[in-house]
Write a protein that binds this DNA or RNA. Structure first.
Lengths: 369, 369
DNA sequence: CTGAAAGCGCTTACAG
DNA sequence: CTGAAAGCGCTTACAG
């Protein structure tokens, strides 16, 4: 070791190693290692002494050394595409918190789902970092190249909200069908009968599930699902706007709209207000996601909160083998584990009973363009 | 070294090491190391041969081994608080991309700015991970405990948009004053004279700078800054709503509002529309941030795009010593480097000239509450 | 231009 | 219950 260039007069930057602790505690490095890893077979007083020295010296084992010598790297990888999604933010937030609690660290990598060498990129990351596990979010969790690279390298992987369940990888998800039913039931219970539904992007798994929930609830209530009220969308604001124009052209308007996500619901809100409709009186609107923007408009949107934080924490637990809250042993079994976490209906001001009595001709509210 | 059994046929799951490459290429591991690290002093054909074998074997050096043996860990840490902020998303996105390009990895850690043991948490992360550098975002980049822990451990650190410049840590920022001037000038050029300004949170550096820019532009245009039109806010939606109520109580309404950030501008928009004002005709609104929500409302907000991605990339470059685009050598000098990156004015539909001609009494538009 | 040796700071078998 | 030895896969000085 050369002369470490000391930045200021303060502390000598020389790092404390396991040997320093061993020497000071009067034990071998193996014993210190045992204490660090909570292994059994150390006398209580020896353990206490070692712990004391560790605290005194502020010793922290080197992740690199542990990783190189042992079987664990204490690194969890999170792969994502589409950075803007509030969904990914939540997952990351939950994962980073759980990782810290467990002494792990989260390495985040943003990858282009359409990159030609995506598999190679994943292989590179995994082989250089040797993470103890990987967490994949949509749409990466359904990308065959990503999945193959991870499978080939035998990296433990957890999928968050995947479209398809896999035999070899556990997954964590919410119940989209049931959640969509709940929203629909809310609308029904408020007295709505002509309820429009705006579909999500066709290539995303959640889209079909949410529509399924909508239809299920409508049927259960014996309310007709009018074909002209079920409109294609793509999860984007603009498609919500377009869908609204289409809906308002109908002779018989809907009194409520359930959009498959908040961005589209926001589009409905904007377009409807622009046409002079009072929300929720003339048109009740519900979204899905509880995105940040959903509470930054007036009226704030009724929506469904996804358990993103909880899903992420569960994913980490599955990876590091921590028993979860419910007592599910987080063992690395080959059986396809699938954890379903509870969602939460967020009722805000964009939904109310249809204002039949106080209904006015739409023209009275129309502003000039 | 025992009998070198050459495994060829079946794909041995054992990871490829530098020795495998060396053997196959007929050179020493040191030469492979040289090639990997782009060190000079390797004959061109030797280098080519090694590179060929590396590709053939899909060899990737172990981050742990490199880190343990050498001076670099190839890990960059990103510390953040307030996960919801679109700002942090952008920074992370830029950092993760730049890291991958440079062969580094981004370790993300979310920390509570008010944690009592924050300094200890930072120390722990740094001493166990030995990152080659850390990136701090507000408000962590101004937290004395964080700064002290990083300084003490001699970890190269770059601050993104800090309130105060430090001698020992370079920073990356945008020009808030100038950006605010630009927005104000846009409003002025549209013909507005009674322009309201909503302040940001008092404890954040950007707040004062943006107000400064507003005042500067107004003075330069010789337009009075009416005291009753400058209102306190805290960067949150609700404060935008409150400010609007206050402004609309005035006998002499403003024709335009410049809110210090988008969340507040969204509050202004919601409150104004609720009062029956036409936006932008009755009231032009401008925000700051180009948040996702800013384009998910009607009318979409005129705002200022922060160079978050570029700031993050610049931060990484400063840390890993890559020459930046502009040719600034990213050396680890002790001099306080301060990079200022260009912002971008985003003009959308929430701003227009004041509709004096078509002005109607506000009462005509007021809806019942 | 190239390589043999030492060692980074831990954990993994083993012994006792 | 505890420890001495070997080795993980690289890079750092050194030699030549």
């Amino acid at each position: 070791m050369g002369t470490p260039r000391t930045p200021l007069a303060a502390p000598p930057a020389a790092t404390t190693t396991i040997s320093d602790v061993a020497k000071r505690a009067g034990v071998s490095i193996k014993t210190v290692s045992r204490v660090m890893n909570n292994e059994p077979g150390v006398r209580a007083d020896t353990r206490a002494k070692v712990l004391e020295v560790i605290a005194e010296l502020r010793y922290r084992p080197s992740q690199s050394a542990r990783s190189l010598a042992g079987a664990r790297s204490f690194l969890i990888g999170l792969l994502y595409f589409d950075p803007s999604a509030a969904f990914v933010s939540g997952v990351q937030q939950g994962a980073t918190m759980r990782c810290r609690e467990a002494g792990y660290h989260l390495v985040v990598e943003s990858m282009d789902n359409d990159a030609h060498d995506l598999g190679e990129q994943v292989h590179r990351m995994v082989s250089t970092l040797r993470p103890d596990g990987m967490i994949l979010t949509p749409p990466l969790c359904d990308n065959p190249h990503v999945l193959k690279a991870l499978h080939d390298s035998a990296t433990p992987t957890v999928l968050v909200s995947p479209a398809r369940q896999r035999k070899d990888m556990p997954s964590v998800r919410m119940d989209d069908v049931h959640a969509a039913e709940e929203i629909t039931n809310l609308l029904l219970s408020l007295g709505h009968r002509r309820i429009a539904f705006i579909r999500g992007a066709a290539d995303q798994a959640a889209s079909a599930l949410r529509e399924q929930g909508f239809v299920k609830a409508m049927k259960a209530a014996r309310v007709e699902v009018a074909p002209e009220l079920v409109i294609d969308g793509d999860f984007r604001f603009e498609s919500g706007v377009a869908a609204t124009h289409q809906l308002l052209k109908l002779r018989h308007h809907p009194t409520a709209v359930f959009a498959s996500n908040d961005d589209m619901a926001l589009g409905v809100l904007a377009a409807a207000q622009r046409q002079g409709l009072a929300i929720p009186g003339d048109l009740a609107i519900a979204g899905f996601d509880d995105s940040p923007a959903s509470s930054l408009v007036w009226p704030p949107l009724t929506t469904m909160r996804q358990p993103t934080l909880a899903m992420a924490r569960a994913a980490v637990d599955l990876l590091i083998g921590t028993p979860t809250v419910e007592g599910t042993p987080g063992t690395r079994t080959t059986a396809a584990i699938q954890r379903v976490l509870p969602h939460e209906l967020i009722v805000r001001d964009s939904t109310s009973a249809p204002a039949r009595a106080t209904r006015r001709p739409a023209g009275a509210w129309r502003q000039e363009e």
